[in-house]
Write a protein that binds this DNA or RNA. Structure first.
Lengths: 200, 200
DNA sequence: GATAAAATGTAGTGATCGCTATATAAATCC
DNA sequence: GGATTTATATAGCGATCACTACATTTTATC
């Protein structure tokens, strides 16, 4: 058996690719939620046995945390991606929602947002706390961004965007497709614009 | 031991109040989600043993179905309540969202909407199908209502309202309070009004 | 009160949960 | 190559999952 860990610089040598394992776990947690994916199934899908699993990740929640971080650091960070393209505040916000409409629909059994819905209804308080922390960080970034131009109404406007995204994630998990989500994203984008224009 | 079933006319006599049991189960499912509430806990909370449980409800999913129906037949049917008060279409829709903002925040450990989030991430396909059926019925009622005046845009507008409600339910389960939810509900109500005025 | 019917309590089914103790195999170091 | 360290596989931990067979008690009927 050969050590195949080529990506991570830190960490001990393992006979399996840790990053690849996190990727697989991310997909499983995303598809069915934290509680519905068991350690036995993770071991099978990852091709490792329980001791290796716990040596590498500490616990099921530990792997979930790594999956969450990987998720948030990739293409799922739609607000950062929208921000990177520049434009006005309203453009960035609407672009965020449109990216959600493209990212959230079901693909290969995966739908919605892992951070928003991955630990929904989970009985594990650790998993819930991990997801909550990342949710709060996400909405805080949006709030701070809005506050640069609208400090008074940043909370309310950020709440509106956060609720729209949570609703889009839930709707995608309930089967809504990209077209319908895009229509709603545009509506919410217009609403955001109009709220800005109303009293700005 | 005395037969205490006074409410239901049909059904066999039981030593416990079936309606009261459904109410208790509804609260438990609502608070933590379908999968996180076990039959053992239900039996304890309901004060009955497994055989009585299965004689009365058939299965855990059977009890969940009764809980869902009871939930949807009560004060949680916010769209029907909003419709009953009359007014314009926009008024009815905004009233629906404002009722959600009052109903969804956490009270006694219960938050959000049981239909929208009670079976979220559940591994039980029966429970998921039951909730999905009720979700579709709910959004269909809103769509049909909108279609009486806006047949062309009924689907899109109903999707927008459905997503807003799903987002509000998720946000409430994530800890958002009535005040913040109300602010967002008003924003969404204004957005709905403006969409109507835009091209009506 | 005897009999038939029905609901209940006791106990336990096999399966799965997250997780780990122990032992073996592999890789590293000198 | 021998010794030490590290990661692996085997097997199983106690707990909980939804659910049920069986015996008993309670209820209803006559």
């Amino acid at each position: 058996m050969v050590a195949t860990e080529t990506s991570g610089v830190r960490g001990r040598r393992r006979s399996f690719d840790v990053d690849e394992a996190v990727e697989t776990a991310m997909r499983l947690f995303h598809a069915r939620g934290y509680d519905a994916v068991g350690v036995a199934e993770l071991g099978t899908e990852l091709g490792i046995k329980p001791p290796s699993f716990y040596a590498a990740f500490g616990s099921k929640a530990g792997l979930f945390e790594r999956a969450l971080r990987r998720y948030a650091a990739g293409e799922a960070n739609i607000f950062a991606r929208a921000q990177a393209e520049g434009g006005s505040m309203a453009e960035v916000i609407e672009r965020t929602l449109l990216l959600a409409a493209r990212l959230y629909p079901e693909r290969d059994g995966v739908a919605g947002c892992l951070v928003l819905d991955g630990a929904r209804n989970s009985a594990d308080p650790v998993a819930c706390a991990l997801a909550e922390t990342m949710r709060k960080a996400g909405v805080a970034a949006i709030r701070d961004f809005i506050a640069t131009e609208q400090p008074e109404r940043a909370d309310a406007l950020a709440d509106f965007i956060a609720i729209t995204m949570k609703g889009m994630s839930a709707a995608a998990r309930d089967g809504m497709g990209e077209d319908a989500l895009t229509v709603v994203a545009r509506m919410a984008g217009r609403a955001f614009r109009r709220e800005l224009a109303a009293e700005g």
